[in-house]
Amino acid sequence: MQIYLPIAEMPISVMLILAMSAAVGFISGMFGIGGGFLMTPLLIFLGIPPAVAVATETAQIAASSMTGALTYWRRRQLDFKLGGFLVAGGLAGTALGVLAFNAIRRAGQLEAVITISFLSLFMVIGGLMLFESLRSVMMARAGKPVRLQRAGQHPAWLKLPWRVRFHRSRLYASAIPILGFAAIVGFIGAVLGIGGGFIMVPALLYLFRVPTQVVVGTSLFQILITMTAATIFHAASNQSVDIVLAVLLIVGGVVGAQFGARAGRNLKGEMFRVLLALLLLGVGLRFATEAVVKPEEPFSITIQGTRL
């Protein structure tokens, strides 16, 4: 069944969009990431104008992170306090990132910078995580206890002044590295045009040693706040949110996210990290092949200055 999208100005298959958004929602609910870096390229591939794809995708991320965050909150696996700090730091970083984005674009190096950053980010984070998590799985098999969080053991930089107690996250740490880190993630997200959940989740796991389930819930909360604001911002500034496409994406996304959050509950911490690492490496490899393999069609066209 096809339905016409009034803002994208093209028809689309309803079933295809529902299936795709359910799959991405599942991943979002399970890993505590937005999933925009998976869905947006798919939408553009289907012929939806990039501006509409990016803007409309924010609505789906808002919806699936809402349903995911609520589920984790009911299980008492959402740290509002930590989430609030992440939102505050993230906002500052995003503002700086937008400025940097414009500066890099003026210098004409944006394409290379983005491609290389994407590649190195996905590959390095994914690779490190895979190595660590596989070792944990092995240790668990061998019967040795695996715990990322060791009680009473905190790296020195968490002991900076202005220490705050985050009960849910079992964390007593300085707010300075937390705010700083959230700002870096917001900065990278704004430059690369992604939400940054896939950087936030490993960071909370490894650097701050927050329990896996709380990481997912808190990350979803932060994504929910930023993406709700982004949806309104996109609609008001460039009128490229397609509400018909948004509803299809939302319906598929929330159903997928519910099942994802449920599946994540039964997942062991080390297995969670193996799967997330594989996901990151997979996406990184996709970007790498795209950049390294000789393209079949070296030319591409961009339509500018439309009403959108």
Partner: peptide, 18 residues
């Protein structure tokens, strides 16, 4: 208004699913 309506729809469907 359109943007806020879309965002509200997203939050509503998100809650409805739970």
């Amino acid at each position: 208004t359109y943007g806020m309506a879309t965002a509200l729809a997203a939050l509503f469907f998100g809650w409805l699913a739970t």
